[in-house]
Amino acid sequence: MRQARLLVCAWALAGVGASGATLADLDRYEAALAKNADDLRAGSEYRQAVIQLKQYDRCIKFFEELVAKSPQAANAYLNYGFAYVDKIPDAGAITQVILANTALSHFSKSIELRPSWIALYTRGNSYLYWPKIFGKAPLGVKDLEEAMKMQKQDKLRSYHVRAYISLGDGYWKMDDLEKARAVWQEGAKLFPNEPRLKDRLSRSGEELAKYIDETLDPNKRVDTNLHELWEDQ
């Protein structure tokens, strides 16, 4: 986490409201990222503005050019992958698969450059969105176990709950309900008020399956806003 924290610059959001993004905002973010491609926060906020404006293709093209110019910028690759994820809910079912697969390749590049908690968590969680038939859940679990190791060496942060949720989901997807419940319970001890853990632990069988399937529905927008990373420093 320390790595990620160090890479978050103090670049201010400067006037982009929840629903007030403009094309001029995109210009400003792009200019900022051109100066520091590895700026995770600027990249995240840029993408949130992109989502508001549905400028997905512009965003993808921008990051494509950015990583070409800054091939060592791990966070640029991470945001590049997220740019594909952000487009998924607005795409058709088959295009979603193509976008998801491309996102994975950029997350992998980010991990290759710098295996941060956020990159491992992100790729691991992404694998879980793939239907069982593709056999990607073990890959997701592997990444999430790595992320879990990393966070256990850090102080407890609010966003660490995500790894408990996703790792449990990964075990569940591998039909290991016992391990799934164990990791959710471990998370619930640390985050007793977390509704997503309560929801999982209070369900079983078909009800749990339905709940997780709905959670991992590619038609629902995934929150890719990384603000928690800098809100809990």
């Binding site: 088959i94 698969v97 193509i98 593709f134």
Partner: peptide
């Protein structure tokens, strides 16, 4: 054997 993983390999080829 299921065709879907085979098909998706093709579909996701850049």
């Amino acid at each position: 054997e299921n065709y879907i993983p085979v098909l998706v390999t093709m579909i996701t080829t850049p």
